Simulated assay, not measured.
Amino acid sequence: MEKSKVYFTDLKTKPGLNLLDKLEKLVKKAGIENIDFKNKFVAIKIHFGEPGNLAYIRPNYAAKLVKVIKELEGIPFLTDANTLYTGRRSNAIDHLEAAFENGFNPLSVGCNVIIADGLKGTDYREIEINCKHCKTAKIGTAIADSDIIISMNHFKGHEMTGFGGAIKNLGMGSGSRGGKLEMHSASQPKIKKENCVACGQCIKSCSQSAIVIDKDKKADIDYSKCIGCGQCVAICQFNAAQVIWNESADTANEKIAEYTYAVIKDKPNFHISFIMNVSPNCDCWNSNDIAIVPDIGIAASFDPVALDRACVDLVNKAPIINGSVLEHEHYHEGEDKFTHIHVNTNWEAGLKHAEQIGIGTQDYELVVLK
């Protein structure tokens, strides 16, 4: 397979060329105009951000992309699927309110906002893929029924997959609640008892009431109820809730790649990643920690695998921000930043599997726009 092109622009501006202009220039240079948008339904898959978390993509960028697509005679809509865990995006009513609160509404972005898997997360299409782990994938109906897929990805760290980029946004983000359960099912957490201080935050955050405080005043997980969503891992400030990874780090990432394959199967697709506010954890939580590196830029490609790989490389080449989690956790120059933060993750397995099932290639050429 020949190298995929990943187009990149930095965040430097000048009079007459602001960041929104640079985004438009980037996507056009990357070839978005080669897609036949005329009268086609265009799903712009984006993460609206959990209210309280301010690291998500600004809606201004979405509005610029919507404008470009409308000029190409497409019919765009912004979309995401409901979450598996508790929070303000676990049903369509709360999810829409959260999206509007964060600035993603028809007036600000110029198109409708649709929750892909319906009111309760049960509205999906089962797409046959016959992959290693998943024979079918449960994809939110609005995404499955669209004619064209565009992903807008906030590139950042992630407690289950190492980092979150195009593949995480498309695969996990497009799955219905049942689909998300299937992808999470290989990653149940454990409690490291000696670290637990019985603060109770994991109990409050557990959507399945699967955690209690035991007689020794330590958190304890009922695995008959646990769905492996990882929220306790993300919420725990004492490294007591940890994922049991053994082979499941690879499995979870591979399943997400397979769901991504289902999303883009037989459809024109294009992907944009914003390498800014690179927070150590996912935008799913209602707060965001200090970024681990300075803002880098925006990248775009027809190949989501190449795009994710390029973003990883750009972050790993960047200097760390003083005061970030990397400084506190004694990062050493040359280490992979994402596995340093989330030591039990294996993001490489997901990209490798994505290559194997034909989503794209990690071999890329970075085209830097002047």
Rank of each mutant, 00 (worst) to 15 (best):
I167K: 00
I115D: 01
F41W: 14
E327K: 00
T260H: 01
N60V: 12
H133G: 02
C226Y: 01
A30N: 02
L307P: 04
H154I: 12
D145L: 10
S209N: 15
E126T: 09
G171R: 05
T13S: 11
G157L: 00
Y124P: 06
I57W: 02
Q362T: 15
A81M: 04
A142K: 05
L326A: 02
V367A: 02
F302K: 14
V109W: 00
K138N: 15
H154A: 08
D308W: 01
P319A: 03
F338V: 07
C311P: 09
C226M: 02
I256A: 06
K120V: 12
N130F: 09
Q201R: 15
K190P: 06
H158M: 10
K40V: 12
T83H: 10
D145I: 05
T141N: 10
C134G: 01
K352G: 04
K138T: 13
N277Q: 13
Y331C: 11
C226P: 01
V233C: 08
L72Q: 02
D250H: 13
I149Q: 04
N344Y: 13
A142G: 13
N34V: 00
L72P: 03
G360F: 04
G74W: 03
I203K: 08
A234F: 06
C111T: 15
K190A: 07
N344G: 11
E247R: 11
E329Y: 14
K135V: 04
D336Y: 07
S185H: 09
N169Y: 00
I127R: 09
A234N: 14
A299E: 01
N346Q: 08
K64E: 08
Q188R: 15
I341C: 05
G175K: 02
F338K: 12
N39K: 13
S151V: 05
V68H: 07
V109G: 00
N169F: 00
A234T: 10
A198Y: 09
P268T: 12
I244F: 07
N18M: 04
L369I: 09
G179R: 12
H332W: 10
H271D: 07
V305Y: 04
K180M: 05
Y56W: 11
P76V: 08
K215Y: 12
A166F: 01
T79S: 07
M152N: 10
F37Q: 05
N322K: 14
L11G: 03
N239F: 09
D266Q: 13
I93Q: 12
C202M: 12
D222A: 05
T251Y: 08
I235S: 08
G74H: 03
K193V: 14
K3V: 04
T260N: 12
P59S: 06
A186I: 08
H95Y: 12
T86A: 14
E24H: 04
H353G: 01
I357F: 03
S4F: 05
Q242T: 11
K25W: 08
I75D: 07
G171P: 02
K3G: 02
L314V: 11
G121H: 04
G118C: 09
Y261S: 07
P294A: 06
C232M: 02
I127F: 06
K204M: 10
G360C: 11
A291H: 11
S279A: 15
S324Q: 10
E182Y: 05
N130A: 11
K255S: 10
T13D: 04
I57A: 02
S146G: 06
E159T: 10
E182S: 13
N269R: 06
R177F: 03
K156E: 07
A234C: 06
P304M: 00
Y223C: 03
R125I: 12
